[in-house]
Structures are given as C-alpha cells and as structure tokens.
Design a protein around this nucleic acid. Structure first.
Length: 880
RNA sequence: GGAGGUAUAGCUCAGCUGGUUCAGAGCAUCUGCCUUACAAGCAGAGGGUCCUUGGUUCGAAUCCAUGUACCUCCA
C-alpha cells in the first residue's frame, strides 16, 4: 500500500473485491463430511422482482450469519435462487404481450410459455446481480430456479406422492377468485382491506301480492339477481310471521322462500339476510344446509352472465352493475335508504383485484390429515427444536395451526408446474401420473383401455408455494436422489431469515415438507425480520414511491454503509424505520475506520531499543488494557450472536472500534507529533486492528477486506472472508477506570471553565490506593494535558477539588470559582447520596429483606452503603 | 367479531431470573473546539410521571388485572 485516500471512497474497491471473491471461489462449498456444515437457503425472490429495501435487510442478515460461519471454519453454504412466481410473472408477461398487441387468449399454451421463458431469460437474473452489489456471499454455482426442470420434477413427484397417500383431493368448493388474474387463490394470497362503501337497504315485496315487504341490507346489490332465499334468525320476534312465506326478487320476480337460521345476526342491518350461495362463502354454507339452488351470475372476469336474466346487466362488469342497479332499484321504489359503510374486502395480493368468492372445482391439500401424520410440525416449534427469533412468533404459529384450513393449490394459469392429473373425454379424473404414457399404463393395469387421444391433462398449474415449500430439500436434489452427498451434508439447514408475513405461506409449509419427506426439520432457527417502513411508519412500497432505490444508496454511501444502516435499527421481529441518516452513520463509521488505518499506517516505525523504558512500559500497559477490552467485547459479541441480536452485536463492535480503540487506545499510544512509533507497539496495534477487522467483516465486508489486504503482504488466495474469526483469549488487563474518570473530570473542568485544552497544568492526587494511579500517570498527562502529577495527603493551597470515586484530585490552578454554584452542586450530590443511603438502610434494616433476599445481594447492599458513605465524606470535606 | 403483539429520553430501541453495576445505548439537540488520522471529526452537557389505575410482594419499568392507544394476523 502506498497512498491512502484522505476520505473513505467505497466506489474505489467494492466491485474489485467482489470480483476477487468470486474469482477465488470463496463462497463455493462442496459437501465435506469432515467439516461442520452451515447452510442457509435464500428466500427465493420473485424472478420478476427488483431489489427493494426488504430484500436488502433480509439478505444483509443472511450474509452476516454466513460470513461469520465461514470465518469460523464451517463449511458455509448459502444457496441462492429465484421463484417463478406464477401469478406475478404471468401477469407481467400478459401485460407485455398486450403492449405488443398480442392477446393471451389468441396464443396456444406452448406459445405463451415460449414468450414467458424468453422474458424470464431476459429479466430473470436482475435481482441476483443486485444482491452481488450488496456483497452477498452466495454460492452462485448453486443458483436454482423453482421452475427449472429438476425442481419442477420434484414438484410433480410430490404431488403424485401426496395424491397416492390421500393427502390431496379435488373438490368443488368456494374459492377466492381473482377476476383479473382469472385464477383461484389460497387464503394466504388474499389481503383484506378496509374500504368505504355503501350499505343498501332494499325492499323485497311479498309474493302474495299484499304489498307488504321485507327489507334486507347489502353492500352488493348486484348479487340480488342470484338470490335464492331470505334468511332471518328463528328467535327474532319481528319476523316470526314470515317463516315459510315467499318474496319476490326485485326485477326478476323470482319467488324465493324466507327461511330461519341462527346464523343471521339480529343486530346487523335489518335482521334479514339475502342468501346468495354462489357469491358468498357463508351463504354457500346456508345454501348447502337448506339445499337451495346455486345461481352463479358472474363469469371468470367478474362480468355478469346470462344467469343474471336481466338484459340490462348481462355482459357488464360487477362494479358497473352495482352502480346501475342501485339507480334502477331506486327508480323502481325498492330502495329504502343508503348508508355509508366501512367494510373489509379481500383483494388479490398479486393483481390487487377485489376477490370474488366463487364456486369452482379445485385441487386441495388436506391439511388436517397432513398435520395428523406430522405432529412434529407444531411440536418442534413449540419445544424449540426449531427456534423462532423472536420467540413470540410461536404463539401466532400455534394459533394458525389450531385453525388450519385446507390449502387450495390449483391455479388457472399457464406459468408453473402443470398438474399431473388426467381426464377422460367426459372430464372424469381417471389418473394422476407424471406422463401421458404412465397414465395410460395405470389405466391399463386397472383394466381401462384409453387412448392417448381421449386422455386430457389438467389445464391448471400448481400454486407457486407448492414448489417453494420444497426449497430446502429440492435445492440439494433431495427428491431426485434422497441419499446424495449434498443433502446429507447440508440438510437440515441452520438458519432461515425471512419476513414474518411469510410464516404461513412458506415457513410453516417448509416445515411440513421437511417432516413428510425427510423425516427431519428443514432448519434449526428462523429469524423473522421486521417490515421496512419509512419515517412515517408507512410500509415501503413502489406504489407509494417512498422506497429509495437500494442501488442508488449503495452508489452514494457504499454497500457497507447501507448494510450497517439497515442493521443498526433492526432487532429481530421489530419493524425497521428506515432513514438515510442511518446509512450516513454507517458511512461515517467506515470513514472513521479508514482514518484510523491512515493514522497507523502513517507512523514512522523504529526498533524498540531506541525508545525510553518509560515509553515502552507505557505502551505495553495501554496494549494490555486494550487486550482486556477486546477479550470482554468478543465474549459480549458472541453472546449477542447466539441470541440472534445482530443489531446489538453490531453496536458492540461499533463502540469497541470507535470508543475503545480509536478514542482511547490509539490516543494512548499515539506518538507526539513528529516522533516515531516503537516497533513492538506498532505490531501489537496492527494485530489489534486485524482482529477488529475480522470481527467487523461479516457486517462490513468490503472496507474490512480493503484494509486487511493493505495491512500486511498478502498473497493471491488470501482473504479476510476466509480468515479465522477471533477467539476471546483471557488476559491480565490493568484496571484503568479511575484513570479514565480522572481524565474525564479534568476535561470536564476545562469545558466548564472555558480553559483551552492546549494549556497544561499540574495536578495532585489524594488516593486511598495509589497503585490505581501511579503506574498510569503518563496516561493522565497525555490525555488530559497535565504537566505534572504528585501524590498528597491533604488538599494543597489554591487548588480545585475534583472527586474521583472515593478519591480526590486537585487541580493546581487559581480559578475564579463561583463558590455558591459549586457548593450547590456538591450539596445536591450529597443529598442524592444520602437519599440513596437511606433506601439502602431501609432495606438492610428490613428483617424480611435480610431473611428473604439472597445472601450475596445483602452483602452487595452493605458494600453499596459503605461506598456511599465514603463518597459523602469526600464531598463534605470539599465543602470545608 | 376473534387472536397475537407493543407502549421506557425528541427519534429508534436495550433493559434476561423482580433488588441503585436500574433507569441505559445509538442517533438527534445544545456548548466549546478546524487540537497534524478523521468536521463524515474532537471534548463535554442537558434530556424520561418507564401509557393509566389498581393488585401481588419486604421490594415492581419488570409479575397479574383493568382501561386507553397503536401495530400485525385471521374472519
């Protein structure tokens, strides 16, 4: 290293070191039974996605964990990859085609998939390249994609296996229908939003022509065309006379019965419920119970179909009809009133469209049965066999499992794994098999002769999560070859880092898959990150435009600064409020380190024998002190890692470097201007620096590598990312607490009195135990700019007293002291200590305390009392 | 409507098994310094009814209950 730039400029070296790491294959891991494996599988981002702040946080945490494991000599493997994201990707491709004037409906399945694949090839890798900018140390040779042939095959095999085990069934059920994506969704893919809508009170006239009517309240007047009954609560006295009567559906004049069921709430709306089995989940249940007909008036796009019967509305969108029918009802005298009303509507996570409950034939996973087969899915989490961080997430997990519902896994899309089910010409399910010929074989074995022409495969594909739940197994080809070296070595994985909202979509289901197909948990720890929000607590999102572009941030502050900014404020499970100023703090820290290194590298180094024994001894003492600090800090940091408290670990490192190393240690050993540094202290300082860089490396990989490479001669193939992580070594460190306090007291006095730090003065110390000061007077002289130090038995004339713990320090200065203010300050201090002593006394004289509290605690209290008494004495004396 | 969570300094958060090493950290603020590594810096300082009200206990920020506010998930 020749010249170091004056300020830290990450742009100069980040790309260089990332390329070097890749070149040297430091991130690549091969199965090796000799070594302890450490594995993370990435939560595969959508192949359509671009990096957002959530990814940044998530992947920074993973990188910290994997880099530390790697430095600790583990066989660290972080498997990257992407998710095919069937709905999101298909929606994007459809939109792109539309822009080119091509309609999906005009394309064959094969042609559409060609377009989708070429789109994926073009844009699919973007997000992974962005992760490289962040410094992610993934094993890129292992990059997987949930829809690549091997992984798709695993999905199909699993489907067939589950079908054969009776864990999957096909059934006509109410599903969440996305009219825009034209597909079914699982419950987890539906987002409930509160909207301002209207509650319409509509009159239904009695069929007997009496002119009497009942009033119902609904937010969806367009569905009256699909009404098949009116329902009231059997105990509702207002409507007893109506039971069994009939009313007419407005406009259609269809006669429908009035039925009674406890389901209806008497205190909501009018107490009369219109029953529309085709368009409401609860109504469907009612319809089943009373064997009511089902009239479905909506098509797959949410437009009214011929079943609506009324020509005015057929072929029109549900929302348009809602508006129109309200007007028409009003004109026809059917509207009693319209109220403003807040209610929840389900929307599609992917397309944003309002979900339509729709009766359709779909494939389902029988979750209750699955759980019965694999009780460990719950037990392992509750017993901490799989640890959640933070642990409070266990409650949510349990509650959800206790209320588990079947999982709808079929999607009416083309982009994804096509369901391996086969139907005859009448649409009857005849076989579940991987290929057409296997299906024919199965049929043959059953004695059914069908030809390829009469056999038709299911048109639908599987839910994206039906492939990602296999991820920890499938990335190691654990389905294709269950005993291969990779899966045996790397599975179960160690840590999973993900967002809490993914718990049910993904974490839970991976645990299911792990026990079902490996008989083993998929990971040991789950770290739930927070949601990244802006300063106003709004979730960062593209539509709000409140999310900074991570790459811009990296360009401005450097990847290390961004990583640190993300981590500083993100305890596990808490939302993180993101602000540029945090990233700035990270960048400033990097700059601090950079300059500390400039200082050390700038020293002129000469052999020890040219230095006075005093200087050598002094530097040795300083080094011993810092070695002690380093030891304590390493233990503390390790502790925080163990509890997955990464932001706290980082804060400990931050303070270790900034305060202990830079502010204290470097100032202690720094030669006066123009003087050289002795060789042994220089070497010790460099080795401290190296240890610090190693400890910091998982958090700030780039700057630590840059400095590490420059602190000594390095060979190609050397890197801090594979250097040994420092271990805490016990040391005999001097206690400098009184020395530091003395220095701070003197600095404080200077500040308070407006004395220049350049002006040196003498001090005298009256101490019970001089050995706490005598060997270190050079430090007080150097760091507090003191010209001479003597030890005395009483306060010399014309000096100012500074209390240092129970000792007294006298500054030899004729200060114009504001006597009254001084006295007041000291008296305040005495009052506080006396109050303190009183409370300790009260405790000690309380028999129950002495009897109940632990003996060491009582002893501690006695000690406190004695200390306080000594301090009071010192203060009293200073008052004269 | 149901479930879970949170409430501590201006902001973001620690505070574990109740006990003055318990009221803390970082940032921000204020004061003084461009002190030859760093103004992206240095040296200091101020700042809190630990959400309310009860209870348990010799002792509560900590445990329990109630209320309030906010967040998340589910219906």
């Amino acid at each position: 290293m020749n010249e170091l730039a004056k300020t830290y400029t990450p742009q100069d070296f980040e790309d260089k070191w990332y390329a070097y790491w890749l070149n040297q294959k430091f991130f690549h891991a091969e199965a090796n039974p000799e070594k302890e494996a450490y594995t993370i599988v990435i939560p595969p981002p959508n192949v359509t996605g671009v990096l957002h702040m959530g990814h940044m946080l998530n992947n920074t945490i993973q990188d910290v964990l994997v880099r530390k494991a790697r430095m600790q000599g583990k066989n660290a493997c972080w498997v990257p990859g992407t998710d095919h994201a069937s709905i999101a990707t298909e929606a994007k491709v459809v939109q792109l085609l539309r822009e080119q004037g091509i309609k999906k409906s005009d394309l064959s399945r094969e042609d559409f998939l060609k377009h989708a694949w070429s789109w994926k090839e073009k844009y699919g890798g973007i997000i992974l390249d962005q992760l490289k900018k962040l410094g992610a140390s993934c094993d890129w040779d292992r990059t997987r994609f949930t829809m690549e042939p091997k992984l798709s095959e695993a999905v199909i095999d699993v489907f067939i296996d589950m079908y054969n085990k009776g864990l999957i069934y096909r059934g006509l059920r109410m599903v969440n229908w996305d009219p825009q994506g034209k597909t079914a969704l699982s419950d987890e893919e539906v987002i409930h939003k509160e909207v301002q809508s209207k509650l319409y009170y509509i009159k239904y006239f009695m069929a007997d022509g009496s002119g009497d009517f009942v009033t119902i309240a609904t937010t969806r007047p367009e569905t009256i065309l699909a009404d098949v009954a009116i329902c009231v609560n059997p105990t509702d006295e207002r409507f007893l006379h109506l039971h069994g009567q009939k009313v007419l559906v407005p406009f259609l004049n269809r006669e429908i019965p009035i039925i009674a069921d406890e389901y209806v709430a008497t205190d909501f709306g009018t107490g009369c419920l219109k029953v529309t089995p085709a368009h409401d989940v609860n109504d469907y249940a009612l319809g089943q119970k009373y064997q009511l007909p089902v009239i479905d008036i909506l098509d797959e796009s949410g437009f009214l179909n011929a079943e609506a019967k009324d020509e005015r509305y057929i072929g029109k969108d549900r929302f348009a009809v809602r508006k129109q029918i309200a007007i028409d009802l009003e004109e026809a005298g059917h509207i009693l009133k319209i109220e403003e009303y807040k209610n929840q509507v389900g929307t599609s996570e992917r397309t944003g469209a309002v979900i339509e409950p729709r009766l359709s034939l779909q494939w389902w996973v029988d979750m209750k049965q699955f759980m019965a087969r694999n009780p460990q899915v719950l037990d392992a989490v509750m017993s901490d066999e799989i640890q959640f961080h933070p642990a409070k997430m266990k409650n949510t997990y349990k509650h959800w499992i206790d209320n588990i519902k079947d999982w709808c896994i079929s999607r009416q899309l083309w982009w994804g794994q096509r369901i391996p089910a086969w139907y005859d010409e009448k649409g009857n399910l005849v076989a579940v098999a991987k290929t057409e010929s296997e299906a024919l074989d199965i049929l043959k074995a059953k004695g059914q002769e069908l030809t390829a022409n009469s056999l038709k495969q299911d048109d639908d594909v599987l839910d994206t999560w039906f492939s990602s739940w296999l991820w920890p197994i499938s990335v190691f080809d654990g389905f294709e070859d269950p005993d291969n070296a990779d899966i045996k070595h790397f599975y179960p994985t160690n840590d999973l880092v993900t967002a809490p909202e993914i718990m049910f979509f993904w974490v839970f289901r991976m645990i299911m898959a792990g026990y079902e197909w490996r008989g083993e948990k998929p990971f040991k720890n789950v770290y739930y990150t927070g949601i990244v929000r802006d300063k106003q607590r709004r979730k960062m999102s593209k539509s709000l435009g409140n999310s900074p572009d991570p790459l811009d941030l990296i360009a401005k502050y450097g990847a290390d600064g961004v990583r640190m900014g993300m981590l500083l404020c993100s305890p596990a499970g808490n939302d993180i409020l993101f602000d540029d100023s945090q990233v700035e703090q990270g960048r400033n820290f990097a700059n601090k380190i950079w300059n500390a290194f400039r200082l050390v590298k700038g020293w002129e180094v000469k052999p020890d024998n040219g230095f006075s024994p005093e200087i050598l001894a002094a530097n040795k003492l300083s080094a011993d002190w810092f070695a002690g600090r380093l030891h304590d800090a390493l233990i503390d940091i390790e502790d925080k890692y163990k509890g997955y408290r990464l932001s706290e670990a980082l804060m400990s490192i931050y303070k270790l470097i900034w305060d202990d190393f830079c502010a204290w240690y470097l100032e202690m050993v720094k030669p006066v201007y123009g003087e050289p540094m002795n060789e042994s202290t220089y070497q010790t300082t460099l080795s401290f620096f190296e240890e610090l860089m190693k400890v910091l490396h998982p958090f700030m990989p780039f700057i630590t590598e840059e400095i590490w490479q420059n602190m000594a001669e390095r060979k190609t193939g050397d890197s801090i990312c594979v250097a040994n992580y420092p271990a805490a070594v016990g040391v005999d460190a001097p206690n400098l607490s009184r020395v530091f306090e003395s220095i701070q007291q003197i600095r404080n006095l200077r500040n308070a009195k407006g004395l220049s730090p350049k002006e040196a003065f003498e001090i005298a110390i009256k101490a019970k135990d001089q050995t706490l000061y005598a060997p270190y007077t050079f430090l007080i002289q150097k760091l507090a700019n003191v010209s001479a130090i003597s030890f005395v038995e009483a306060q010399p004339q014309g000096t100012t007293l500074l209390p240092v713990d129970t000792d007294e320090l006298f500054v030899v200065l004729n200060l114009q002291v504001d006597e009254a203010a001084e006295r007041e300050k000291i008296e305040k201090e005495i009052a506080y200590l006396e109050g303190f002593m009183k409370s300790v006394d009260a405790k000690l004289s309380n028999e129950k305390f002495v009897a109940n509290a632990k003996p060491e605690l009582v002893e501690k209290e006695r000690q406190k009392k004695a200390d306080a008494a000594a301090k009071i004495e010192v203060l009293r004396k200073s008052l004269g």
